[in-house]
């Protein structure tokens, strides 16, 4: 009998399948942010342009449906099409918040586990590196979806529901699949890049600063370079500009920065490849645990 008042209890119950072990890690990573007021405010701010537009449509249709003046006003609103969604999806405000959330949620994903040495506790259990990274990436990815795919879906539902224009779904199907493609290629790559950066340091603060540096200071550098050279290649230094151009290309709209579609695709594939390469080297050789 131990010196304490309760003896050891054996466990004979069921066990969760190996493929589902990532779920608690994902939940633990993502859930705490939902209890932070500042973070919730950030989400609301990001969704605000979409909410205002959706609620505005609803309000106009239900309250002033018979008013000729209001109908005239509604007619003047920009049409819900690929061009408009591309502008809304990649506007500066949304991209700014996308970076803020990436830094807030993403900088500590792996770095915090390295700092607290909980990474070896997780990987010492029946949780492979792939599952671990998937759980961490999914935590950030879930929030980034709220800035990209989710608002577009909500907007389309609002639009079709209020106007009764079901033909919109196949006439402008690209609004949905283009946004999905953009989400996977753009913010999806961003998640992998953040994971790779986070695996390089034990300090979430350093990772955060590096991310902010890459995201925000690349834009003015590219703008200056573009002003001098007038070459679309100048935007290569700015992830935000490339993200914006990718959004336009995915929705079939010519981007303002005249970045060619091949350039955009190669840019994000190269970024994805480099990030995956870093993660592979760090985890397969277990360097991330040192």
């Amino acid at each position: 009998m131990p010196i304490f008042d309760q003896g050891y209890q054996a466990y004979g119950g069921e066990r969760r399948a190996l493929g589902r072990r990532w779920i608690p890690v994902w939940r633990e990573e993502a859930a705490p942010y939902l209890h932070k007021r500042a973070f919730l405010l950030l989400l609301v701010l990001a969704l605000l342009p979409w909410l205002v537009f959706g609620a505005g449509l609803s309000f106009a249709k239900t309250q002033f449906g018979d008013s000729s003046a209001m109908q005239e006003f509604v007619k003047q609103l920009p049409p819900v099409d690929e061009s408009w969604v591309a502008k809304l999806l990649t506007n500066g405000w949304d991209n700014f918040l996308l970076v803020i959330v990436s830094v807030w949620v993403g900088s500590g994903l792996v770095a915090r586990d390295r700092k607290e040495r909980t990474l070896e506790v997780f990987l010492g259990r029946a949780l492979g590196p792939m599952q671990y990274l998937w759980a961490k990436g999914a935590a950030l990815g879930a929030y980034l979806l709220l800035f990209t795919f989710v608002p577009v879906v909500v907007l389309v539902v609002f639009h079709v529901g209020l106007t009764g224009d079901t033909a919109f779904l196949w006439q402008h199907a690209r609004v949905l699949w283009g946004t999905l493609l953009y989400t996977l290629l753009g913010p999806g790559t961003l998640v992998v890049t953040v994971l790779a950066l986070s695996s390089l340091s034990r300090s979430p603060r350093i990772v955060g600063l590096a991310l902010i540096g890459i995201m925000f200071f690349g834009l003015p550098a590219s703008a200056i370079l573009w002003a001098i050279t007038r070459s679309p290649m100048a935007w290569t230094f700015s992830v935000l500009a490339e993200l914006r151009a990718l959004g336009y290309h995915c929705l079939g709209v010519a981007p303002e920065m005249e970045i060619p579609v091949l350039h955009s695709a190669l840019y994000f594939l190269a970024l994805l490849g480099a990030s995956l390469g870093i993660l592979y080297l760090r985890f397969s050789r277990r360097e991330v645990l040192r």
């Binding site: 066990r15 890690v25 029946a126």
Partner: peptide
């Protein structure tokens, strides 16, 4: 409890 779940125990267990 989190590590128990990672080792396959259902949440309540």
């Amino acid at each position: 409890a989190l590590l128990g779940e990672v080792s396959g125990l259902p949440r309540r267990a």
